[in-house]
C-alpha cells in the first residue's frame, strides 16, 4: 500500500463508527442505507484527501463531508421513511433496562426524523458531543445562531421523545 492508502486506512478505522452513527441518524436507523452513505462518505474522503490542508481539524473535515453526503442523498433516505427499519436497534447495557432504553432510542430516531435536514445534522452532531464551535464550523452557521438553534432543537426533541 502507498502512503496515501495507509493514511486513508487510518482515517477509515478511526472515524468509521462516528460516521456510521451520524448516517444512521439520517436514515432513521436503516443500517443498510447508513452503510451505503458511510461508504459514499469515505469515497469522497479519498477523492478530496489531496486537497485537505489542515485549515480545519481532520474530524471537522470528515464531519462536513459526511453531513454534505447525507444532505445530497435526502431523496433516497426520505423514500425509505415509509418503512422505518429501527426494530433492530441495540443499546449496550444490562439486560434489565436494555429494552426500555432501546424503546427510547427508537423514539429518538423517530423524533430526529421529524426535523429538517439541517436541524437533523446539527442535533446529530450535538448528540455526538461535538463542541458548538465545531458544529458551527461544519454547518457554516454563526456560533451564536448555532447556540440558539441547538437550545431550541434540544427542547423540541426532548418533548417529542417523552410524548409531551
Amino acid at each position: 500500500m502507498g502512503s496515501k492508502e495507509i493514511t486513508y486506512q487510518k482515517i477509515y478505522e478511526e472515524n468509521y463508527s462516528k460516521v456510521m452513527r451520524l448516517c444512521m441518524g439520517y436514515t432513521v436507523g436503516d443500517e443498510s442505507l447508513a452503510k451505503d452513505l458511510t461508504q459514499e462518505t469515505f469515497i469522497k474522503v479519498w477523492q478530496n484527501l489531496d486537497g485537505f490542508r489542515n485549515e480545519s481539524g481532520l474530524s471537522t473535515w470528515i464531519y462536513r463531508i459526511c453531513v454534505n453526503t447525507c444532505l445530497a442523498e435526502i431523496r433516497r433516505a426520505r423514500k425509505k421513511d415509509k418503512n422505518l427499519q429501527i426494530d433492530n436497534l441495540q443499546v449496550s447495557d444490562s439486560v434489565d433496562n436494555a429494552t426500555e432504553k432501546e424503546d427510547m432510542l427508537v423514539r429518538l430516531y423517530e423524533c430526529i426524523n421529524k426535523l429538517t435536514s439541517t436541524n437533523k445534522a446539527i442535533i446529530l452532531l450535538e448528540l455526538e458531543g461535538l463542541p458548538q464551535l465545531e458544529i458551527s464550523e461544519i454547518m457554516g452557521i454563526k456560533h451564536e445562531a448555532i447556540r440558539t438553534r441547538i437550545h431550541r432543537i434540544k427542547q423540541q426533541l426532548t418533548k417529542c421523545v417523552h410524548n409531551e
Partner: peptide, 10 residues
C-alpha cells in the same frame, strides 16, 4: 443513550 448504542465498527 445515543452514544452508547451499538453500531457497526470498521
Amino acid at each position: 443513550k445515543w452514544q452508547n448504542q451499538t453500531t457497526v465498527s470498521a
